[in-house]
Design a protein around this nucleic acid. Structure first.
Lengths: 201, 201
DNA sequence: AGCACCATCTTTACACTGTCAAGTTACACA
DNA sequence: TGTGTAACTTGACAGTGTAAAGATGGTGCT
């Protein structure tokens, strides 16, 4: 009998949390359910994560890592001959795709009070995701001869707001009416946004 | 002794819920705390609201009503001689102001799993708020000679996404660093958006 | 006026939650 | 081989939502 030491319970609990999250949603998730799914007693998580908030903070950190990776991949995969406009749209598509593929994780990351939003690492990785999405904006501004730093930051904010707002609405649609497919196609606001940014200033 | 019948416990519970929400946040809110604050036993709410979800759904419905009223007021108060561009910005300002004034209520409305998102009345009132914010977009499109329905809807979506995304970021900033004031001033993305919509197509 | 009805609220109970404290196990290292 | 200690279990406690059953008192009917 050597079940006593799990091997990598920390990882196991994070995976269990992800699974429970997808099965029962953020509201149905509990520390005890995660422990049960990982095959350990209800108090085992305490030793690896100070609290439920600690576990979910860590899960959010990891999720932001995957999220950033997906955004980066979309950017890098887009052919270098492609316009900046199209690159932005590719990143936006990846953003939306992640939200639709991992709705519960996405909601955990962006709109749950459970993770510790003041956690340093969480702030850092969410900043990285933001930077990755808006990475194409600066070149876009450069190309248009916009050098004012404040204006560039506003453009980045606009880009993020647009895609995030759109993802938010898509998820809401999905929650109410089940899977939504008609929103995934064109991603109109991101298309508009590209046109817009090209006309800026 | 006639405390037995509260008078208007339904209303009292909703107000208590609002108060508890502001004091302890969505995570600290509990049905029993609301009951206590309303001066009534812990199981009293059951008779007026089927569940915690029911109470918060009702609170969200009311909040959306106030929200819509604030947006409408911003629109109506803006002088009729003012440009459509400025009207949109006024509505956006009201949107942001509501989010900053009632952060917990705002989060309840837009990003909490507790209210029943498939509730008919909730869907209706949130639709009304959306319609109120985007009310100025169609005239704006008309003025630019844009008649394509799909394009107009995209412009509305863009307007909402922009302001909502901006409000979301502002709230996050507020959560982490306390009150945020430097974001409330100019509302840059809404300003950009106005310019943008004027240049559309 | 008296009486029955019934919406409203209380009491009680149960399963479930997060978290702490104390006990148990088994691995690692001396 | 023995011991220290990290990893895990057991047990306990206050708090949660919610269901069932009992208590209360206003309302309307006769």
């Amino acid at each position: 009998m050597s079940d006593y030491h799990h091997g990598d319970l920390r990882k196991g609990l994070l995976e269990a949390a992800h699974a429970v999250l997808n099965e029962k949603g953020i509201h149905g998730l509990s520390l005890r359910a995660c422990a049960a799914k990982a095959g350990v007693s209800h108090a085992a998580p305490t030793h690896h994560f100070k609290s439920l908030s600690g576990l979910l903070t860590e899960l959010a950190v990891i999720a932001f890592g995957e999220f950033t990776k997906a955004l980066r991949k979309a950017y890098d995969d887009s052919d270098s001959e492609v316009t900046l406009h199209q690159r932005l749209q590719a990143a936006g598509n990846a953003y939306l795709q992640f939200a639709l593929d991992e709705p519960e994780l996405f909601k955990l990351m962006f709109s749950s009070p459970l993770p510790d939003q003041s956690n340093e690492r969480l702030i850092e990785v969410s900043g990285q995701a933001y930077a990755e999405l808006t990475r194409v904006v600066k070149p876009l501004c450069d190309a248009k001869g916009i050098t004012d730093k404040a204006t560039i930051e506003q453009a980045e904010l606009l880009a993020w707001s647009t895609i995030h707002g759109y993802a938010h609405l898509s998820l809401k649609q999905q929650d109410i009416y089940g899977v939504c497919d008609d929103m995934t196609g064109g991603m109109p606001p991101m298309a508009i946004l590209g046109t817009i940014l090209e006309q800026m200033k």
